Amino acid sequence: MAALSGGDYRVREMVTLLGESQNLISYHLRLLRDGGLVRATRSSFDGRDSYYHLDLDCCAEMLTGAGAALHPALGLIPTAPQFDSQAPASVLFVCTGNSARSVIAEALLRQRTNGRVEARSAGTRPQPIMHPNAVRVLREEFGIDISGQNPRHLDALADHRFDTVITLCDKAREVCPEFGEGTRWIHWSIPDPSEAGGTDEDTYPAFQATAADIDTRIRYLVPNLTTET
């Protein structure tokens, strides 16, 4: 669970990461899925594979419930993140088209940190324009306007250094280049909402679900980007 709290992994990656057998890891993943603590998504790069993701909201609810059951004074008290103004964190979000997932993540991280984290996004094969539903969901659900923003190619940031690089697309993960030593790599396996099929109106609910998923992940990412002052 601690490993999955930092990003999404395939079973074989967890075997290497944890040094345990595949059968043992698969067994515990099945138990965690049955308990609602872990979710799985089919890889968009290799449909025979799956990525596992820890549902941190569910974990928080269960921990809070367990504390309250033990003693009413025991609960999780959220604290505001502290930022080191002398060394702000820098984060790059990467997907394929840079027209939906990564740009949504960039906008939400910037909003959740009031611009105190340098958030950028790019695509391995950027689309000509932002997806209309990405613009719409940020405007309607979060009050963010990205209508004047254009997709960016990853090559444009080749000389830039980031503290954290987060891939949100299984395909982009396979081709994303390295950004130097000391960069923290995270993968979020998030399906492309534009592939839900149909008109923009038909796929808008998929964009709402994707934005909500990304926002949840951002909320839990922020404390890991802060530096105590």
Rank of each mutant, 00 (worst) to 15 (best):
D55N: 11
L168R: 06
H187N: 04
P128S: 14
V117R: 05
S50R: 15
D34E: 15
E20S: 06
I129T: 15
W188V: 02
V15R: 03
P193N: 08
F83N: 02
L32K: 02
K171W: 08
A2G: 04
S44T: 13
V175I: 15
R39T: 07
G67Q: 00
G182M: 12
Y9H: 12
A122N: 05
P81R: 06
H71V: 15
D49R: 10
D8I: 07
F142D: 09
Q127E: 06
G97L: 07
R161A: 05
N98T: 02
Q149T: 13
R136V: 00
D55M: 01
G197R: 00
L37F: 05
R48F: 08
D155M: 13
V103L: 11
G97W: 01
G115P: 01
P132Y: 01
N224Y: 05
V91Q: 04
L56S: 07
A134R: 03
N23G: 13
A89S: 14
T203I: 14
Q86N: 12
T216A: 15
S99C: 11
V103T: 12
M14L: 15
P88L: 14
V38G: 00
Y9N: 07
Q111A: 13
V137T: 09
V15Y: 06
T210F: 05
P193F: 05
G182K: 13
T227H: 10
Q149G: 02
Q82H: 09
R116I: 07
I146F: 03
E178I: 04
L109C: 01
I214E: 04
I104P: 00
P126K: 00
T199L: 07
R33K: 14
Y52S: 12
C95G: 14
A206E: 02
L76H: 11
G182W: 10
V165G: 01
G97P: 00
H153Y: 14
Y220C: 10
A107C: 08
L70H: 03
A40E: 12
D57V: 11
R219Q: 15
D202V: 09
N114E: 15
Y204T: 14
P191N: 04
A158K: 12
D8R: 08
A172R: 00
G197I: 01
D163E: 13
F45P: 00
A80G: 08
N224H: 14
C176N: 04
V94E: 02
S90E: 03
P81H: 01
S147A: 12
L17V: 10
P205E: 14
I166C: 12
V165A: 12
A105L: 04
G198C: 10
L108F: 06
